[in-house]
Design a protein around this nucleic acid. Structure first.
Length: 730
DNA sequence: CTGGGTGGAT
DNA sequence: ATCCACC
């Protein structure tokens, strides 16, 4: 990090969703040793016999079906699909059979999520360290979006970069490049919007690969989606699971709408993020009610696609509003839910990548007693003690500083939730019958536990006992009054949940010291600064008014010809697809790229779906909305999304990680004679009014008229000096 | 058919 | 504070 910097400036707005699915695995390499018991996030191995392999979590019952979920359903069960199918088994495999096939199978307790949380935290921290603006949004333990407005390799040196072959996209792509437009060296897109978009996505794909390789160094594999918004990034990340990345090629004369719609259209409604079970069901019902009674067989509600729904002639946002009004979250009228759904169906999503959160907003622990409901108050108390114990532990790991000396935040509220055991046959909903009660969280929880430096279990025990006896138990009784008149002799509790929330941040400015390491301090500064800053949703727009962040990406286009490969550590894989056909073929056949699309389900029919009126209106409105902000606006965000491996492993060559061959790029260490003071710059950015990285200083380049932020100036200069070489591609 | 979380609407 | 939906 101390050596000179490569002059790459990553300035276009990029966003990346990474996810590292939670799953442990063992590798049965011809009877080789199993992997260690360390939890692995999304690590699926295959051995030379193409037998793929798996994770198992321990459980009382021998069926994978009863394993803890979240983990189970997404990773474990799905991961087991592969051998199960091989064996001709339908879906589930018992642990016994798994062991029969894989004698070395490691059985892990899947109920304790701590190891997974730890890994998740580690990888999350890693990803965060590559972002200047800390727009790194987590979804659960295993998914992350990143907004790479200011991607960086080194917090101390914003120009540090890596070299790569910019002639092609890293990883896989969805859709194909449209060629034949004017311009050169940009895949045929010239310098217009399509070209800029392509350049940004291209860059994004390489950034994503870079991050994924870093994560692989940590021992975890990832899938990733790269697109212009969170929704698309998440979805397109599924295309080449579990261990590759996919960029949605959503550029072209039509702004990529056609590609986007084709992509979106083939998805089942439920697969669209933001459309959950209830919504999908309502929408499916509507479609079925609209479909011709004469037509053949009634469609399976689960298989209805976005295209199907959009084909309904009378579909409109207000129609959807009323359609979904019965859903409680769209209370009554005018919540705009219909509009929202419509935009989702078209792959539009303006939600920003949220800044990384310093602290959780709540911590809760719950346990269910489905098969064995709690009856006596003693049982209740016992369980409450257990739960409170783990809650206190969680509070310490999540809310205290690393030394466990100081609370970073104190929850003000304590909430107890209970649910009576419901008849297995009814009361479907997960939240059914839940009742809760909140109260202030007594201060002694912190004072005693906080001052008792390490693991003074005794002190903790006192706290726990006291909390249960003085607070939780009374709360419980209020929630579940026994009614003697009805002859109730005991409780019947199927669920207990204890939650602390309403975090009260401890003043960060008083916490001097700040040991930590390297960029961490800066990160913390940023976060702390933000705490005193009002988040301004408008800045997303303000962002794009005067600034055209595209230009900085362009130098990258020309760097591939430069010095690659000094550093053996960096193994940039261009698992190339579009490379062959895009290189020097700006006017080549459009079909060249047609087969590099890894998605079997969405490529086949070219069926052009007529864009609905709604869509046109929405788009027109969007255009109006953004025009005054500058035309770039609507395509300014790029997202990566790394997804998990809940799909069956695919042996196809496209899905295999190719480390060898093709271009190997290397960290380019190039001395820089920069006279800018980066630290000052960065601080200015980071601690600015909105705590974000937009807006900052810069100049308009006299050569190309693009706004160039100061830190990217030298890179931009170099871009112009290299412009001629770019012509080689033409 | 579970364990966390988050966020919105009331 | 409570519910509900979502991941």
């Amino acid at each position: 990090m101390t050596s000179g910097a490569q002059r790459l400036a990553f300035h276009s707005l990029h966003s990346l969703q990474l996810s590292h699915p939670v799953s442990t695995h063992c590798n049965l390499q011809n009877g080789a040793k199993t992997q260690d018991h360390q939890p692995q996030l999304n690590t699926t191995f295959r051995n030379t016999n193409s037998r793929c392999i798996h994770i198992v979590y321990e459980n009382k019952t021998p069926s994978l079906k009863s394993l803890p979920l979240g983990i189970r359903q997404k990773s474990l069960l799905a991961t087991c699909n592969y051998p199960a199918r091989r064996l001709g088994v339908k879906k589930l495999m018992s642990i016994a059979s798994a062991l029969a096939i894989c004698p070395d199978l490691v059985i892990v307790d899947g109920e304790d999520l701590t190891p997974f949380r730890d890994v998740s935290k580690r990888l999350y921290a890693l990803l965060r360290s590559y972002s200047w603006n800390d727009r790194v949004e987590r979804l659960g333990l295993d998914e992350v979006w990143m907004d790479h407005s200011w991607f960086c390799l080194d917090n101390k040196d914003p120009e540090k970069g890596f070299a790569f072959n910019a002639r092609g996209f890293a990883g896989q792509v969805y859709g194909r490049e449209k060629v034949g437009l004017e311009g050169s060296g940009t895949g045929g897109y010239g310098g217009g919007q399509a070209g800029l978009l392509r350049t940004k996505l291209l860059l994004a794909s390489h950034l994503a690969l870079h991050l994924r390789l870093k994560i692989e160094e940590e021992g975890y594999t990832t899938a990733c989606g790269i697109s212009t918004n969170k929704l698309l990034a998440k979805l397109v990340g599924n295309v080449n699971k579990p261990r590759n990345q996919t960029t949605l090629l959503s550029f072209g004369p039509d702004d990529g709408e056609e590609t986007i719609q084709r992509f979106m259209g083939s998805h089942q409604l439920r697969k669209v993020p933001g459309i959950g079970g209830k919504t999908a069901a309502a929408l499916s019902d509507y479609f079925i009610s609209q479909s011709k009674p004469g037509s053949s067989s009634p469609p399976n509600p689960k298989e209805i696609t976005v295209d199907d729904l959009l084909s309904c002639p009378n579909l409109s946002p207000s129609k959807l509003d009323s359609l979904l009004s019965s859903l409680s979250f769209s209370s009554g009228t005018g919540t705009g839910i219909g509009k929202h759904i419509v935009s989702l169906l078209h792959g539009h999503d303006s939600s920003p990548v949220k800044p990384a959160r310093l602290l959780p907003t709540q911590i809760s622990i719950e346990d269910t007693y489905f098969s064995c409901p709690l009856v006596t108050i003693e049982q209740i108390q016992r369980e409450l003690v257990k739960i409170t114990g783990s809650l206190l532990k969680r509070m310490k790991t999540d809310l205290m500083d690393d030394d466990k000396k100081r609370w970073l935040a104190r929850p003000k509220t304590l909430r107890l939730t209970t649910r009576p055991r419901t008849d297995p046959r009814e009361g479907r909903g997960y939240g059914y019958g839940r009742v809760s009660k909140s109260q202030g969280l007594p201060g002694y929880v912190f004072t005693i536990a906080g001052s008792n430096s390490h693991g003074n279990a005794h002190g903790d025990d006192e706290i726990i006992q006291r909390l249960v006896a003085e607070t939780l138990l009374p709360m419980f009784r209020e929630l579940n009054p026994l009614n003697p008149r009805k002859g109730e002799k005991g409780y019947s509790i199927g669920l207990l949940n204890v939650c602390v929330t309403n975090m009260d941040s401890v003043d960060p400015t008083t916490g001097g010291g700040g040991s930590g390491g390297r960029g961490r301090d800066i990160k913390n500064m940023f976060m702390r600064a933000r705490e005193f800053t009002v988040y301004d949703p408008e800045h997303e727009h303000a962002d794009n008014t005067g600034i055209q962040p595209e230009t900085e990406a362009e130098p990258l286009d020309n760097l591939d010809a430069e010095d690659l490969s000094q550093d053996p550590d960096l193994n940039l894989d261009m698992s190339d697809t579009s490379y062959e056909s895009s290189i020097g073929k700006a006017r080549g056949s459009a079909e060249d790229n047609n087969n590099d699309n890894g998605d079997p389900s969405t490529t086949n029919h070219q069926q052009q779906h007529p864009v609905s009126n709604i869509h046109e209106q929405a788009q027109a409105q969007a255009d109006r909305d953004t025009n005054h902000l500058g035309p770039i606006m609507s395509t300014n965000h790029y997202y990566f999304h790394i997804e998990d491996d809940d799909e069956v492993w695919d042996d196809s060559p496209d899905n295999v990680w190719n480390h060898d061959e093709e271009e190997e790029a290397a960290e380019e260490e190039e001395a820089t004679e920069e006279d800018l003071d980066y630290d000052d710059l960065r601080d200015a950015e980071g601690l600015g009014v909105n705590g974000d990285s937009d807006g900052g200083d810069g100049i308009k380049c006299p050569l190309c008229n693009h706004f160039i932020p100061l830190f990217a100036l030298s890179a931009h200069e170099r871009f112009h000096s290299m412009e001629f070489e770019g012509e080689l591609d033409a």
